[in-house]
């Protein structure tokens, strides 16, 4: 579903990704963990070219995303992204946030868009809040709307960029529950996270990154339980 080959990304002189090779299979849930500055978010953002890779190749669902001739907007529609800072549209209601791209990108008619939006709000547990503006919602509720907004486009892959890092601890659970539910339904997911519990329970594979490279990867029981690399052990000792 996703294939990353020799991906490099530099910001000016600073090389953040130093040659990443990674695959994500269909219906697989991959959690990417690592210290800050390891390049995890940059990796995710290179997949849909929110950051432009310096070199390397990214293929998503058969389309070479890094190819200058590819239809980037269409590819992005097939990749749902959820951000650490939610990035909900403040001037739209919860329903409006979801229907905007449905009507402008997928060209759905208003009624069909609203119906889909409502069913997704129900799925993330926010049925009664469709007319609320983001400012009236808690962080956890906003993030769930953001997840619904990305899901509405019926993407092939969902990308989660530290989506619980900006939440108060008591609100993290409700978002992880939605993500767990998605994983259970067979969604292909790539999740950059600090939530080791979630990674252990839900991930099919855990990838540990440090200083721009993949240090080790494998099933959660292996990477989190018996890490082979010293750097992985050192990181986990700090966070677990």
């Amino acid at each position: 579903m996703i294939r990353v080959e020799a991906l490099r990304k530099s910001f000016g002189d600073h090389e953040v990704l130093k040659g990443i090779d990674l695959d994500v299979a269909e219906r697989e849930v991959v959690c990417v963990i690592g210290p800050s500055g390891s390049g995890k978010s940059t990796l995710l953002r290179c997949l849909n070219r929110l950051e432009e890779p310096t070199s390397g190749r990214v293929t998503v669902n058969g389309t070479v995303v890094t190819d200058p001739g590819c239809d980037l907007d269409a590819v992005r529609t097939s990749m749902g992204m959820v951000f650490q800072s939610f990035n909900l549209f403040p001037h739209k209601t919860a329903l409006g946030n979801i229907t905007l791209a449905l009507t402008t990108v997928l060209r759905m008619d208003r009624a069909a868009a609203a119906a889909r939006a409502r069913s997704l709000l129900e799925r993330v547990g926010l049925s009664g809040r469709e007319d609320a503006h983001p400012a009236q919602l808690s962080g956890g509720q906003q993030q769930r709307v953001a997840i619904a907004r990305a899901l509405a486009m019926e993407p092939a892959v969902m990308l989660f960029d530290e989506v619980t890092s900006a939440l108060d601890p008591e609100l993290v659970g409700e978002v992880l529950a939605v993500m767990r539910d998605l994983a259970g339904a067979g969604t292909t997911m790539m999740v950059v996270t600090h939530e080791m519990g979630f990674a252990r329970e839900v991930a099919d594979r855990v990838v540990f990154m440090d200083e721009g490279i993949v240090v080790e990867q494998g099933p959660p029981s292996a990477v989190l339980g018996h890490p082979r690399q010293e750097r992985t052990r050192a990181f986990l000792a700090q966070v677990l």
Partner: peptide
């Protein structure tokens, strides 16, 4: 905030649509 344009583009909205419907109103 830049995240607004990023969110709109990541949904597949074209630059023009993102400007008109998300950034300019704000």
């Amino acid at each position: 905030p830049r995240g607004q344009m990023e969110a709109a583009r990541s949904l597949g909205m074209k630059y023009r649509a993102a400007m008109r419907r998300v950034v300019l109103p704000q």
